[in-house]
Design a protein around this nucleic acid. Structure first.
Length: 423
RNA sequence: GGAGACGUGUCCGAGUGGUUGAAGGAGCACGCCUGGAAAGUGUGUAUAGGGGAAACUCUAUCAAGGGUUCGAAUCCCUUCGUCUCCGCCA
């Protein structure tokens, strides 16, 4: 969430930036600033009264100690009379604080100045396109047919076990998953990311910390009996590792990576978008997360983009990088780059990674801070990216590398997979 | 799942209603001592928020939330977590 101090000092800037994200009612900013003023005023009043009360109570304690019972009793009566005024003030303050909080919490992060204006995915800016699209022969088929042909994923039985969108990987299909996971984790740890294997369910506070709650509640599977949520991405547990922590400046940057299955309800999706592995309810993903010094985050995001680009290059997949427009960005992000790979048989770009800088938006919710040189605590900047999401990578690998009687795997996977082709 | 014990600052640990934000120790930082180090010694050492130009000051925080009281780390309730024993179990 945004910091009220920042809003107060940058009213016009906040309004202007919110409009880039197509935020509806900009006048809320003025309302919040007013409310903030009221909150601070009430705070002074109630704390002053509280201070008087505390002092009086101490005095009673001293009088009792000296055995001056009668004076103490008188004082007690005096203090008791102030109590209702104090309670009244405290209630007013709590109400005002709640209003203020509820207002701030619904404000999205402010987009970075490089974010293009726009409303829909069409308005995203293509910053790079690389890799040759393969020329497939006339017999080329989409990945769901290849999956059948080589018996890699059994969607029907997955649906029987759970429901549609829960793929059952099988044989070489299962092994390819394992190979990719292993490769991606090795690639990330070689770049200095510490590997984690986090819980797959999180509590409310954790889901709230990264911004899944309250605004994306409907997208997560909710285990109501225990109040847990199945994670939609490793970002959630991994970023929260440092929730409520103050780290030393020298510990930054903190680089973490984790493989987890991801669970998404994807309510409302339909059509060819959800065919095969294009969009599923459970999928495997390897995530990278960084907590960095605020001055560094815009350099780091470029590093992370380069890191993922290099990984895609080793897989020899054609890809493009998009800078998301204000309307297509997530609630929590200040700048997001999406990576899409080209699925040659479907002739479609499929998103396989999304790299975002959240600046202090998540850190403020999670209270992830560091002590700077002058010993002041500051919020860190948090960033994350997928490196990578598996299903669409698999779809592309299958489609782009198909031949009449086998699928050629890129060289980097040969050792991990234990073979050079799927046949 | 049943029974019991417990949850205090960076860590260990004292504290069962009254100047307790919290004894004592360790650690850490800075200084003294030393040729240098160890030992010794002195001082300092939480977080958040408010007010103030500043010095500083006020409020809150002893797992979390609520309650009793003029006053709660200390009493009561709820939740969470840890440990021990039993049960079950990959």
């Amino acid at each position: 969430m945004l910091q009220i101090n920042f809003i107060r000092q940058n009213i016009d800037l906040v309004k202007e930036r919110l409009s880039v994200k197509n935020y509806g009612d900009i006048s809320i900013v003025d309302k919040l600033v007013q409310l903030d003023e009221q909150v601070r005023k009430l705070k002074v009043e109630s704390e002053t009264l509280q201070a008087a009360n505390n002092a009086a109570s101490k005095e009673i304690g001293m009088l009792m100690g000296k055995g001056e019972k009668e004076l103490a009793e008188n004082k007690k009566l005096e203090v008791a009379q102030q109590k209702s005024a104090l309670q009244n003030l405290a209630q007013q303050l709590a109400d005002a604080e709640k209003l203020l909080y509820d207002g701030i919490i619904q404000l999205p992060n402010l987009p970075h100045t490089s974010v293009p204006k726009g409303k829909t995915p069409e308005d995203n800016e293509v910053v790079k396109e690389a890799g040759a699209k393969p020329a497939l022969g006339p017999t080329a088929v989409p990945h769901w047919d290849l999956i059948k042909k080589y018996d890699l994923v059994d969607f029907e039985t997955g649906a029987k076990l759970t429901g549609s969108g829960f793929p059952l990987y099988k044989g070489k299909g299962a092994k390819l998953q394992r190979a990719l996971i292993q490769y991606f984790l090795d690639y990330n740890t070689a770049a200095g990311y510490t590997e984690y294997l986090p819980p797959l369910m999180v509590n409310e506070a954790t889901a709230y910390g990264t911004g899944q709650l309250p605004d994306k509640e409907g997208q997560m599977y909710h285990v109501t009996a225990d109040g847990f949520y199945l994670i939609p991405t490793a970002e959630v547990p991994v970023t929260n590792i440092y929730r409520d922590e103050i780290v030393k400046e020298t510990e930054l940057p903190i680089k973490m990576t984790a493989y987890t299955p991801c669970f998404r309800r994807e309510a409302g999706s339909f059509g060819s978008d959800v065919r095969g592995l294009n969009r599923v309810h459970q999928f495997d993903k390897i995530e990278i997360v960084q907590l960095v010094h605020p001055d560094k985050s815009y350099v780091v995001i470029e590093d992370m983009v380069a890191h993922i680009e290099k990984l895609l290059n080793t897989l020899q997949l054609p890809y493009r990088i998009l800078r998301l427009c204000g309307g297509d960005m997530s609630f929590t992000s200040a700048l997001t780059y999406d990576f899409e790979v080209y699925s040659a048989a479907q002739q479609k770009w499929l998103e396989v990674s999304s790299v975002s800088n959240f600046e202090t938006f998540q850190a403020n919710r999670m209270k992830i801070r560091f002590k700077d040189e002058s010993n002041k605590t500051q919020l860190v900047h948090s960033l994350n990216g997928s490196s990578l999401a598996l299903p669409r990578i698999v779809a592309c690998l299958l489609e782009n590398n198909q031949t009449e009687n086998c699928i050629n795997l890129p060289e980097v996977l040969h050792n991990y997979f234990g073979a050079t082709t799927i046949s």
